[in-house]
Write a protein that binds this DNA or RNA. Structure first.
Length: 467
RNA sequence: UCCCCGAUAGCUCAACGGUAGAGCAACCGGCUGUUAACCGGUUUGUUGUAGGUUCGAAUCCUACUCGGGGAGCCA
C-alpha cells in the first residue's frame, strides 16, 4: 500500500499500484451500472483524480451516494488505466472513508463557476477552487524562481527589517507601529504639541511598517556585492484599485558596481526567467489560465520571451507621445509624469512589447536616484509590459555624498536624519543599482487575472483585514 | 480620496410604478463508463439598510453600507 498524491496517482507509471489517496471531493456522478465516479482533488496538481466507487462498497448507500463537493475522503484501491477519455488513470476503490463531510445544503462552493467577487467573501474556502489552486501553485513557483535566479547569479538573500523608524522614502503613507495607548494614557498626550510622547513608546521614537527594504539593502549590497530582499511590504495609502494592496510581497535586488545598463539587463533577464519557469514548471496551471481566464495570455507571454526590451529615454518617449496624434486625458510634456494611459500606449500600441523607459526628470523622482551629467535627469528606469503597464521600477543610486545630500535638501529632507545612509557614501562609496517589483503584480501579469485581490490568499486593502 | 455603475432565491441574473421569476445548486425520482453528465419533478425571498414620494415601490427620490470599473498614488 503506497500513499499517493493525486498528482502521483495521475501519472501513467502509477498504473498497477495499490494506493492510498486522500483529498476533497469536487464532484460525484452516479452510474446505475453499479458504481459512482468521484472527482478527487488534493491540491497537488491542477487535475482531479477519478475514483471509481463500486456499489459493492459497504458504505456505498450510506456514505458514497451522499458525497458532495467539499467532503474529505481517504480511499484505498488500485490505480488502473482509464478506459474512457478525460484522464489517463483512475483508482478503483476497495474502501472509502469519509474523514469530513460537507453539508451540500450549506457548502458555498458548487460545481459551476463562481464570480471572483463572491469567492472573495469566502477567502478561506476559495483555495479549493481550480483558479485559486492554480494561483497558489504558480505563486509558489514564482517564489522559487526568484530565489533560484538570484542565487545562480551570485546574490545573497537578505532580510531587511519589517519595522522601521526611518520615515524616509515618500513611498506612500505608512502604518504606525506603537504600544502607546490610543487614548487616555498620559503618554498619548504628553508629547510636544499635546500629541503622543514617542519617547515613551516601545522604540523610543515613531516607528512604522516598512514600505521598502531598499535603503537597508543598499547597506548590505555595499558589503556583500549582490543581495536581494523578498518579503512583505506595507502601504497605508487609501488606494482602491485592482492593482493595489495594503500588504504585498516585494522583491528588491540591490547590486554594487552595477550601473543603470547593468540594472536593465538584469531586470529583463529576470522577467524572462519568471515567464519561462512558469510555462515550463506550471504547464497545467498556465494552460488553465489561458483557457479560462485570458485567451490572449500565452501568445503575449511568448512574445515577451522572444523580444528584446526596447530601451527608450524619457525625453524620447515624451516626444513620441507628443506627436502621436492621440488625444490624452492628461497632458503630455517634458517634466510631467507619464500617466497610465501614456505608458499603456507606448508598450501596447507604439512598441507592441516590453519597454524600459529611463533617465527621468530629477523633479519626478526620489532623492536617492543618481543625477545625470545633464543635471536635469536621473538614472531611473521603469519596465513597462503590455497588459499590465509598469511592472518594475528601479534606478542607479546616487553614490556621490555631496550630490546626495543636496538632493535630500532639494526634496525637503534633513540629511542629518539619514546619517547611516550617507555613511555608505562617506566610506568606500561605489556605483550601485537596484530595482523593485511586486510579487502580486507579477502574478497578475503571468496569470491574466484582473484583480490583485485574487492573486493573494488573504488580501489586505482599505477596510479589509478579514480572515 | 474623486468620477461612473451596481446590490432581487445558496450562486448568476430577469421583472423598469400594479404586488417577484428563470437557469444553476439543493432535495426526490429516472437513465447512463460518467467526466461543468443527461431527463422529469419539488423546495427556496423582510428585493442591501433607513427614510421619503405614491392609492400602490424591486422599480422613482435622499442618505448610508457594501461590491465593481476608471482615475490619482504607486509595486
Amino acid at each position: 500500500m503506497e500513499k499517493l498524491t493525486v498528482w502521483a496517482a495521475r501519472q501513467p507509471d502509477a498504473v498497477g499500484k495499490m494506493a492510498l489517496v486522500r483529498g476533497w471531493v469536487r464532484t460525484r456522478r452516479d452510474s446505475k451500472g453499479g458504481f459512482s465516479f468521484i472527482e478527487l482533488n488534493d491540491g497537488s496538481c491542477q487535475g482531479n483524480l477519478q475514483i471509481v466507487a463500486p456499489a459493492t462498497l459497504a458504505n456505498y448507500e450510506s456514505d458514497v451516494k451522499k458525497l458532495g463537493p467539499g467532503a474529505a475522503l481517504t480511499i484505498t484501491g488500485e490505480v488502473k488505466a482509464s478506459p474512457a477519455k478525460g484522464q489517463v488513470t483512475e483508482v478503483h476503490a476497495s474502501a472509502i472513508a469519509v474523514l469530513g463531510s460537507a453539508d451540500p445544503e450549506s457548502y458555498p462552493l458548487q460545481k459551476k463557476g463562481h464570480s471572483f467577487e463572491f469567492l472573495r467573501t469566502i477567502a478561506h474556502l476559495r483555495p479549493r477552487t481550480n483558479t485559486f489552486g492554480a494561483i497558489t501553485r504558480l505563486r509558489s513557483q514564482v517564489s522559487l524562481t526568484v530565489h533560484q535566479f538570484f542565487h545562480e547569479q551570485g546574490f545573497f538573500y537578505i532580510h531587511t527589517p519589517i519595522v522601521t523608524a526611518s520615515d524616509c522614502e515618500g513611498a506612500g503613507e505608512l502604518f504606525k507601529v506603537t504600544t502607546l495607548p490610543l487614548e487616555g494614557g498620559p503618554a498619548s498626550t504628553s508629547g510636544p504639541g499635546g500629541g503622543p510622547d514617542f519617547s515613551k513608546d516601545f522604540f523610543g521614537k515613531p516607528a512604522f511598517l516598512t514600505v521598502s527594504g531598499q535603503l537597508q539593502a543598499e547597506a548590505l549590497a555595499c558589503a556583500l556585492g549582490r543581495v536581494y530582499t523578498f518579503g512583505p511590504t506595507f502601504r497605508a495609502e487609501n488606494s482602491n484599485t485592482p492593482r493595489h494592496l495594503a500588504e504585498f510581497w516585494m522583491i528588491e535586488p540591490e547590486m554594487a558596481f552595477f550601473d543603470l545598463e547593468d540594472n536593465m539587463t538584469l531586470a529583463e533577464a529576470f522577467i524572462k526567467r519568471i515567464i519561462r519557469d512558469a510555462l515550463e514548471k506550471c504547464p497545467e496551471e498556465m494552460a488553465f489560465f489561458h483557457e479560462r481566464v485570458d485567451p490572449t495570455l500565452r501568445p503575449r507571454l511568448e512574445a515577451i520571451l522572444g523580444s528584446d526590451f526596447r530601451r527608450v529615454p524619457y525625453t524620447e518617449a515624451v516626444a513620441l507621445l507628443e506627436k502621436s496624434g492621440q488625444s490624452w486625458e492628461f497632458p503630455v510634456g517634458w517634466g510631467r509624469d507619464l500617466q497610465a494611459e501614456h505608458e499603456r500606449w507606448l508598450t501596447e500600441k507604439h512598441f507592441g512589447g516590453p519597454v524600459i523607459l529611463f533617465d527621468y526628470p530629477r523633479t519626478l523622482k526620489p532623492f536617492y536616484m543618481r543625477v545625470n551629467e545633464d543635471g536635469r535627469t536621473v538614472r531611473a528606469m521603469d519596465v513597462l509590459v503590455p497588459g499590465v503597464g509598469e511592472i518594475i521600477g528601479g534606478s542607479q543610486r546616487e553614490e556621490r555624498y555631496d550630490v546626495l545630500a543636496e538632493r535630500m535638501r532639494e526634496q525637503g529632507l534633513d540629511p542629518a536624519a539619514y546619517g547611516w545612509y550617507l555613511d555608505l557614501r562617506r566610506y568606500g562609496t561605489v556605483p550601485h543599482s537596484g530595482f523593485g517589483l511586486g510579487l502580486e503584480r507579477v502574478l497578475l501579469f503571468l496569470s491574466g487575472m484582473a484583480n490583485i485581490r485574487d492573486v493573494i490568499a488573504f488580501p489586505r486593502t482599505p477596510g479589509h483585514a478579514e480572515f
